[in-house]
Design a protein around this nucleic acid. Sequence first.
DNA 1: CGTACTAATTTTACAGTGTTAAATAATTTA
DNA 2: TAAATTATTTAACACTGTAAAATTAGTACG
Lengths: 199, 199
Amino acid sequence: MGSKERIHRLKEQTRVNILDAAHDIVKDEGWQALSMRKIADKIEYTAPIIYEYYANKEAILLELTKKGFMLLSCRMNEAKNKHEKLEDQLEAMWLAYWNFAFAEKEYYQLMFGVEMNCCIMDELLPPGSTPYDIAAGPIAELMGIGDIEDDRVCTKYYTYWSIIHGLVSINIVRQGTSDEINRQILKDAITGITRSLKN
Amino acid sequence: MGSKERIHRLKEQTRVNILDAAHDIVKDEGWQALSMRKIADKIEYTAPIIYEYYANKEAILLELTKKGFMLLSCRMNEAKNKHEKLEDQLEAMWLAYWNFAFAEKEYYQLMFGVEMNCCIMDELLPPGSTPYDIAAGPIAELMGIGDIEDDRVCTKYYTYWSIIHGLVSINIVRQGTSDEINRQILKDAITGITRSLKN
DNA sequence: CGTACTAATTTTACAGTGTTAAATAATTTA
DNA sequence: TAAATTATTTAACACTGTAAAATTAGTACG
């Protein structure tokens, strides 16, 4: 009676089909378009069947998150193992992270909750009052550059912004890390970048 | 017939009431709990009335985003104006940004799309295979620290992660910035932090 | 004051969502 | 072949955003 196992394998297959279908839908139409009925359509079943395999929609998302983290870890590990020197390992790993984020954008969004809402800032605020406009002045001045739109100023602005937004996001998402460490990182980063302006 | 103006003022008031109600709901129950009917309940009307004031739900979110950006800009400006020295201005501005993100968390989430999905990574991956586990090794070694869980290692790891995640998020949300500049920032940041490990 | 018109508001409705319980179809077991 | 189990679907509920129609309230005019 090996049919037991055949059936078991088929069910296992359906489990991954559900995940794949979900991933496909998200790749085509984005996260907010994902619905149980669409998944069901794609695997040629009706919606309630999915609850035989996953407790609810959130469980599916959790499973995909898990897959995403495993993929990311894998990529970082591969990158690391391609190098001997520690410095090279670190660079390769973070580059792998970077590449993963864009190659597997949907996973990354799910894992770290990067939803692109309406972020056209420049069109929402009166000209001259965006954070960029406010911060670019001192940056340009410290760098001895007259034009606020200069690429070098822009680069430094994004450096500030990235690290701060990164820290913020991580802290909003993960409640864990200690306030003391965060303050430390923040201060270090800011003064570090500021120092780098005067070269 | 000044009643025309009184009525106009009342309608104006309802417009802001809708926004306030939405903000209140989100503060209490989070973004995904926000619904037109709940807003209507809070302002003691029925749902369709809201469409007399805003085209749709997205328009409400956009208006709140705008408010958020104006608030943020305001805070940064205030911080800036409290200082004379450029370095101090920059530090104060980014600290203001930081404080805004947590004091007005709901706004920040809306503005930059930071949804906290399930990000308990450590529980999703087998021990020893999280990105932290992978990256902390070389970091600790370069710093000459034996214990991977040492706070100094942790701090540096978060510094890497923050700037890279920050860059990624900004790039996912804003399609605008040039790839060249991003690569530049990324490389600079990584080598910068890596150099800082060896002190 | 009562009638006609306009504006404000609600009721109803539709298509969609996640999810559960009951009904049915298919398959396996005795 | 009949009974029992399993697989799958249909029907339903309570939501969601949104649009059209029906209703109520308020104003203007004869």
